[in-house]
Simulated assay, not measured.
Amino acid sequence: MAPLEDLERIYPIIDSDFRMFCASHGIFTDEDFLLHDLSALEAFAAPEKLKQGIKQIISIMESRQRPWLNGLELLEDAQLNKCTLSTGCERIDVLLQGGLREGHVTELVGPSCSGKTQVCLKAASHVARNSLGKVVYFDTGNSFSPKRIAQFLSLSSDASTAEFNKTVERVMRSIVCHSVFDIFTLLDMLRQLINNLKSQIDFQVRMLIIDSLSSLIAPVLGGGGAHGHALMVTAGFLLKEIAHEFNVCVVVTNHMVAGEAGISKPALGESWKSIPHVRLLLSKKYSTNGTCITILKHPYLVGISSSRLLTLGMLFIHCITVSLTTRY
């Protein structure tokens, strides 16, 4: 995050007039800029020079990448930080050799009703119940279900009614759910979360879930404009920062769109594909009333054959179809 005045030395178009225009809209850094709707800003940016300044900052945000790390730094980070969190689903944990990894961004991609939200809810309930930390859940489509969380807890509990109710209350207090309906609000809340983690206000956060991320990003990508792409890159950058700097397990969901020859493919395009560390494809198998989970991308499991993954995925879903697919 760079103050706009620091950018003037490299980009003269970001001069005092442009900074005054930005300040009048509460924009003081390059990331503040991306929390605003571009069309609304351009409506106020009457002089062509102001519009050129807006395009210049978009270009800066598009080209931003994490600093390079040498091999030793990467090895030390992998050895120190990357613990796994169980999802509460034995077959998923077997598939991923332990579960979801802290410090990584994991993407669940698949068509509607393939089980993405159910996996998110199951993982949230299990982490909140068994780890000393919070789960932050950004709900973009009113899919978060406290009743479903309670049902997952009941499936693995043999405690008395009073003890079970205490467990449910404790778990619910550990899951912080926010409704988010546009990309600008999401970026604002991610920055707020980073500030809280830095100041140790929310230093016990173990997992961040965004269900679904693509529903917020896809609308701003329409038309192939640079602004939408910059917003997507910024969201990815912030998610990776949260995962890496604060050792948080980040889970996002993504939907499918029609590709060439009508073949479905993950939404958000090729640029997004490089952002998640792990990509899991969930596909519905109506013949077995279940879902197949396949690893599309994983930094540590590249040696596992696709046929093995298919078998594990189908076994997992076959065993827990009822607990994942029941809806309210």
Rank of each mutant, 00 (worst) to 15 (best):
L296F: 04
L190I: 09
V233E: 01
L95P: 05
I149R: 05
F138M: 11
T117A: 14
T321V: 10
D32Y: 01
S131I: 10
G115Q: 03
I210Q: 08
P12I: 12
I210S: 10
G303Q: 10
H227A: 15
R9A: 14
I57E: 06
A218F: 06
V105N: 02
V180I: 10
S114G: 09
V257S: 15
P276V: 07
S156Q: 09
T321F: 07
N81M: 11
S174D: 11
T106Q: 07
C83P: 08
I10Q: 13
L38F: 00
L221G: 11
C292Q: 09
S323P: 05
E76D: 03
R91K: 14
D182S: 12
C89V: 12
P12D: 10
F144Y: 04
G259Y: 01
S24C: 09
C292T: 06
G262E: 04
S305R: 14
T87P: 06
T253E: 02
G99L: 08
A128N: 09
T294P: 05
R327A: 11
F316D: 11
S59H: 03
V205R: 00
D93Q: 03
I295L: 14
A40M: 07
S157N: 14
T167R: 13
W68V: 15
D15N: 14
S59N: 13
L35T: 14
T234M: 07
S154A: 15
F144T: 03
F44C: 12
F44D: 10
F203P: 08
T325W: 01
C292P: 09
